[in-house]
Design a protein around this nucleic acid. Structure first.
Lengths: 216, 216
DNA sequence: ATTTACTTACTGACCGTTCAGTAACTAAAT
DNA sequence: ATTTAGTTACTGAACGGTCAGTAAGTAAAT
């Protein structure tokens, strides 16, 4: 459209640009969307490439294989969120009840309603195919998440806010409605024309859970 | 090795038998295991056939395509369980608390620790690939399950056992720890050498939930 | 002898992977 | 400033393995 202004004698629009630094991130982002949408096997690298604005060959300049790309997607996108949660818990000064509520809502804000929500679904679906990645995810995400929540509950028991329940199990039970909602919502969006009332779901979970664990 | 017999004419053991009636069920059962283990795309029909004790060609005598087989697996295996739960709730005479506990444990006995546990995982993973099947599953399993649990909670509210919470949401929250455990347990068995303490998990869920929803 | 449940051998499409070639960029030389 | 020689990010076409689906042939049953 715009005549190429001033200087350039060469074509106004080069067919492509060299953007070595930007490519890997763009490819990972495109792959995340495609893997989540279609699953690992059904995702064609040609489609990932097109969405990332390159061609198939370019993928292989930055990733050794489809599997390596998949692993990069999981490793690079989800771990930072856990760290963020740990920071929040460490610096939080209020009651355990408030912290629990805060963490639940923060999880949804950072994962549940972003593209990251696809990662848990992916890991559930592909766990059997990538045992080594699964172990990584389990240790760096699942157990770390549980430990984070277990710390909160322990805090509540010590402060007298909570009953002396089994900490590890209680932590899993605080997380599981979040995890399930994360996974199920994506799977069934098309079946819920009325939408899923996240606010009500989270609010009721927090309410029931805190009532359930409260002392006396 | 064994020299082919004496007995005159035909082999003592025919190389295969004609078992028209038994095949479909056996094929569906084999397919369920394979689909759950490997996911839809990574499951080879030749492997399903081998596990079912036939060859690939035979599958096509009973199912039109891989997709048709997958749909048969989902449709035929899971719906009966829901019906069973509905029957239980209908005929139950005790308190709402007891019924809720009973349903939770029954779910685990019939689904959680059987091969059926793979179905929810499969549906989450393949929902995007089979929209029509997903709608079927959502209506005939998910919402029916929620309605079942919602009925129990409504019963508890009417009887004065439970607080007047939002019934639909509370029903989802009673189910979600079960659903998540069903899915996650299978994905992470290999990562949990110590195993997953189901009894403690279910017990704590029932305890926390009933405390949480109890009146006063 | 005929029917048909089942097997076996084959086909064709699909897709991850490779790599020779090309266009974009860089900087040395004029 | 412009040319030119060299480097490298990127393309696109082709290869080869895999696997859903098919059809000709075989053996069980009646």
């Amino acid at each position: 459209m715009s005549q190429s202004t001033t200087t350039s004698k060469r074509q106004p629009h080069p067919r492509w640009k060299r953007r070595k630094d930007a490519r890997p991130g763009e490819i990972v982002a495109a792959a995340l969307e495609m893997f989540v949408e279609r699953g690992y096997a059904a995702t064609k690298l040609a489609d990932v490439a097109r969405r990332a604005g390159v061609t198939k060959g370019t993928l292989y300049l930055y990733f050794d294989s489809k599997e390596a790309l998949f692993k990069a997607v999981v490793r690079e996108t989800i771990v930072p969120v856990i760290a963020q949660g740990e920071d929040l818990a460490r610096s939080f000064t209020g009651s355990a009840q408030e912290l629990l509520e805060r963490l639940v809502r923060e999880y949804w804000r950072l994962v549940g309603e972003t593209a990251l929500a696809g990662i848990p679904k992916l890991m559930m679906a592909e766990a059997a195919t990538f045992p080594e990645l699964t172990r990584f995810y389990y240790e760096e995400v699942v157990t770390r998440g549980h430990r984070l929540m277990a710390g909160v509950i322990e805090r509540g028991i010590k402060s007298g806010e909570f009953r002396p329940v089994d900490v590890t199990t209680a932590a899993k039970l605080a997380m599981s409605p979040l995890m399930h909602a994360t996974v199920a919502r994506r799977a069934f969006v098309s079946c819920m024309p009325e939408g899923f009332n996240v606010e009500k779901y989270l609010g009721t979970h927090i309410d029931l859970y805190l009532h359930g664990i409260a002392k006396q």
